[in-house]
Amino acid sequence: MRAKITYLITAAVLAFYFVLVGSRGLLLIKHGTLLTVTFGVAVLILPVIGVWFLWKNTRFVTKANRLAAELEAEGALPVDELVRDEYGRVLRESADEVFARRRAETEATPQDWRSWFRLAVAYHDARDTPRARKAMQHAIALHDSRPVPAP
């Protein structure tokens, strides 16, 4: 729940920033000189990129949470079996061991979005965020492309 609140606050602050920067860009364009119009257009590009980035990340998080909820309903969410040190940090050897099992599971069932989801969690636990994100994107793609069961 704390992560959702943090995400919402960050998104709201970014949205405010995009509006503020966008209004400054429009003011520069309204000034009407070649230099201010050029700067105004350049300034307007930043909020456009930011809104796109925020939208893509929000969609990604929403879809990943939907998969997590589905796994939770099935009772198939990955169990936290990581060994931690006295400060609560995951021990590297423990993360590597869990990762090896998750990778083997995914290699055995490469079309199962559930195994890709669990692999993404293992990548995250091993602090490999780029690969965790790619594995989760693959899980989402597999989930979204599966045939919908007839009612």
Results as ranks from 00 to 15, higher is better:
residue 1 M to H: 09
residue 1 M to E: 09
residue 2 R to S: 09
residue 2 R to F: 08
residue 3 A to R: 09
residue 3 A to D: 08
residue 5 I to N: 11
residue 5 I to L: 10
residue 7 Y to L: 13
residue 7 Y to T: 15
residue 8 L to H: 14
residue 8 L to K: 08
residue 8 L to M: 08
residue 8 L to R: 12
residue 9 I to H: 15
residue 10 T to F: 12
residue 10 T to S: 15
residue 15 A to M: 15
residue 17 Y to I: 15
residue 17 Y to R: 12
residue 18 F to D: 02
residue 19 V to P: 07
residue 19 V to K: 09
residue 19 V to S: 09
residue 21 V to M: 05
residue 24 R to K: 12
residue 25 G to F: 01
residue 26 L to M: 14
residue 26 L to D: 15
residue 27 L to M: 15
residue 27 L to F: 11
residue 29 I to A: 08
residue 34 L to T: 14
residue 36 T to Q: 12
residue 37 V to A: 14
residue 39 F to R: 15
residue 39 F to Q: 15
residue 41 V to K: 02
residue 42 A to N: 15
residue 45 I to Q: 03
residue 48 V to S: 15
residue 48 V to A: 14
residue 51 V to C: 13
residue 52 W to L: 12
residue 53 F to A: 13
residue 54 L to R: 04
residue 55 W to E: 13
residue 56 K to H: 09
residue 56 K to I: 12
residue 57 N to R: 14
residue 58 T to D: 14
residue 58 T to H: 07
residue 58 T to F: 10
residue 59 R to P: 06
residue 60 F to M: 13
residue 60 F to L: 13
residue 61 V to Y: 06
residue 63 K to D: 10
residue 64 A to F: 03
residue 65 N to Q: 09
residue 66 R to F: 06
residue 66 R to Y: 03
residue 68 A to F: 12
residue 68 A to Q: 14
residue 71 L to V: 01
residue 73 A to W: 02
residue 73 A to H: 04
residue 75 G to I: 11
residue 76 A to L: 11
residue 76 A to K: 07
residue 76 A to D: 08
residue 77 L to N: 08
residue 79 V to A: 12
residue 81 E to G: 13
residue 81 E to L: 11
residue 82 L to M: 08
residue 83 V to M: 06
residue 84 R to W: 02
residue 85 D to G: 15
residue 85 D to A: 09
residue 86 E to M: 07
residue 86 E to Y: 04
residue 88 G to Q: 09
residue 89 R to I: 03
residue 89 R to S: 06
residue 89 R to G: 10
residue 89 R to H: 09
residue 91 L to G: 00
residue 94 S to I: 02
residue 96 D to E: 11
residue 97 E to Y: 01
residue 97 E to D: 12
residue 99 F to N: 02
residue 101 R to P: 00
residue 103 R to W: 09
residue 104 A to K: 14
residue 104 A to R: 12
residue 114 R to F: 02
residue 116 W to K: 01
residue 116 W to N: 00
residue 117 F to T: 01
residue 119 L to G: 00
residue 120 A to I: 01
residue 121 V to N: 00
residue 121 V to H: 01
residue 122 A to L: 04
residue 123 Y to D: 01
residue 123 Y to T: 07
residue 123 Y to N: 03
residue 124 H to G: 08
residue 125 D to I: 06
residue 125 D to K: 04
residue 125 D to P: 00
residue 127 R to N: 04
residue 129 T to L: 11
residue 130 P to F: 09
residue 130 P to N: 10
residue 131 R to K: 13
residue 131 R to M: 09
residue 132 A to K: 05
residue 132 A to N: 13
residue 134 K to H: 03
residue 135 A to M: 05
residue 137 Q to E: 12
residue 138 H to W: 05
residue 138 H to L: 02
residue 139 A to N: 02
residue 140 I to K: 01
residue 140 I to A: 01
residue 144 D to R: 05
residue 144 D to W: 03
residue 147 P to Y: 05
residue 151 P to D: 10
